[in-house]
Design a protein around this nucleic acid. Sequence first.
DNA 1: ATACAAAATTGAACCGTTTCAATCATATGA
DNA 2: TCATATGATTGAAACGGTTCAATTTTGTAT
Lengths: 343, 343
Amino acid sequence: MKKITIDDVAKRAGVSKGTVSAVINAKNSVKPATREHILYFMKELNFHPKGVARNLKNGFQDKSIGLIIKDLGYHFYTSIAEGVREYAYSMGYSVVISSSHDDHEREKKISHFFSAKDIKGSIIAPTVNSKAEIEHLFRLRMINYPFVLLEDVKGIQANVVSIDNLKAIKKAVKYLINNGHKRIVHFAGPPQSSHTLERIRGFWHAFSESHLVFSKEMIISIGSDYEESFNKAKEYFIHKKHDEYPTAIVCFNDHQALAVMMALKELNICVPDDISIIGNDDIYYSQIYPIPLTTIKAPKREIGKRAAEILIRNIESPTLLPVEKVILDTEFIVRESTKTLIS
Amino acid sequence: MKKITIDDVAKRAGVSKGTVSAVINAKNSVKPATREHILYFMKELNFHPKGVARNLKNGFQDKSIGLIIKDLGYHFYTSIAEGVREYAYSMGYSVVISSSHDDHEREKKISHFFSAKDIKGSIIAPTVNSKAEIEHLFRLRMINYPFVLLEDVKGIQANVVSIDNLKAIKKAVKYLINNGHKRIVHFAGPPQSSHTLERIRGFWHAFSESHLVFSKEMIISIGSDYEESFNKAKEYFIHKKHDEYPTAIVCFNDHQALAVMMALKELNICVPDDISIIGNDDIYYSQIYPIPLTTIKAPKREIGKRAAEILIRNIESPTLLPVEKVILDTEFIVRESTKTLIS
DNA sequence: ATACAAAATTGAACCGTTTCAATCATATGA
DNA sequence: TCATATGATTGAAACGGTTCAATTTTGTAT
């Protein structure tokens, strides 16, 4: 299945390729009859002009940036994307997005794709499971391709804009501790997600910093899919004696927290009177829910904006710029799903 | 600010461009010392190899499709994207996404961008406000660029995968009518959205087909932003006498419906006992909400999948294929936010 | 019919890489 | 020291379009 080129069309239509080019570019120097004639053969041969060839000659000066996120359906990332978009548009850049699904291979492929398409730079939420999995970043580095990471990655010095997840969770857990909670538990997220581990670590740190005993029974893996979380949460409580219930649960994210609250409702366990719940992310619907959720709010749009800022600065600089690292603060928002145990 | 090419690097490093090329492509035929030397000058000149030139030579055989949606934060579109992704991946295609924000100019720019980058074909949720605004589709058509629309557009024969929104709303309204509701009202969406008009039309059709009188007071524009919908909904009821309350509200979408239910709650109006509510879209959180929402479920993933199917079939066909139009069925899901008035 | 201007068409050079046969450099063994 | 094998480097052609000065065709006025 040979590739059809402008020469094929020109030959078939009996004109020069200059004329075919003029038709493609809707120049009005072409006689209508000739245009029709050429269009006819373009159709017949099903010819698509290759952008790559036209851009080569034209200097391909489009302004565009890429964004590689982990999940399109996850509010956290789409909000970041919104921040990126806003800033990028204001600077005249287009944004293209692709999701890696937390899969390293995909991420590698997409980052390569973006650079190969002369997307001028990329913002990447990296999925890195092992030391070997930063090669693709080194390759981008080698070809001086501008990029900004949304999480710090060990082993490479690169631009990063992120939040201190560890500190955020610690703040939440310490809030519970300071309010008299003793039996605190963490409902962890999906095992393959990098966020899951980070949050478990934050939970653990809070305990050690408060000189409290941490045991691994405090971490219960219930995922973040609604059905799964709902069922596993119920199961957890059904197998527990009443006086062994935790007094507070730190959830993986708001989405999971909502599922947990539904499960508790079905079991007639009252939030926050029987159990306090803390979410993470501050998604939209957790405010709408009848018991507004206490949660950790990440400055999602701000993350996107700052990342885009750094990226575009690097793209537009004629020289290589020094690496920048930005860690943004999270906000712990106390709403109605938590209760103090201190009278 | 001159563009740096491989020639500049070669000259500066005192080697031929073939050698520089070998370094860029990590070929191991280059002596380590030479490699380092060349890398040094690549850095110094901040040289990025142009993908466009390498692709031209290489035959640019990446497999990729584009998706232009209207809103990244809107569940309806991200679910479609999920369907697209799933099918595309199974066929070895990458997916890149960009949001038009329901802005025709953006859409035009993005579609042009995708074709210019040799993204092999695109799925487009079109924003078309006037006859003149389909030019860009004609241009894609002229260059035989494969695309599939997610809404039918008057004036152009093109591949379409969509749902029958009109029919869907009609079914919902008729359900209410058949269950004895007399005072039914539609809370319309944001005026600039194409969906808004379509849903108003569906509402109107249901009345005329049921031989009931329709008046324009039945359409109340309250948007779909949470704050706005919440406030306007409250305002609507505050200015109404109790016995003038509608017995049922057909909402623009689930998101709006949730805002309306919150407003009603604050006014101590009971759903569904005082007023029935119907949403649209069947988003995730409307099942989680304490009063599960009666709604219209669109086969979102299926839409994405079918669109991707048609697109890839067209991309891979050596000849121009006839246009396909697919209209998928919606499902009316009765949950607990509606009540029959017939005893 | 002829001259001339305007319109339409041609074709060679160019864009920035990769490729690979040819050439040059280096190390090895006799 | 020379011949040879191997490793490293070169440079011209190729990729598929666009551009634009030069040329050909067409239309108009005489």
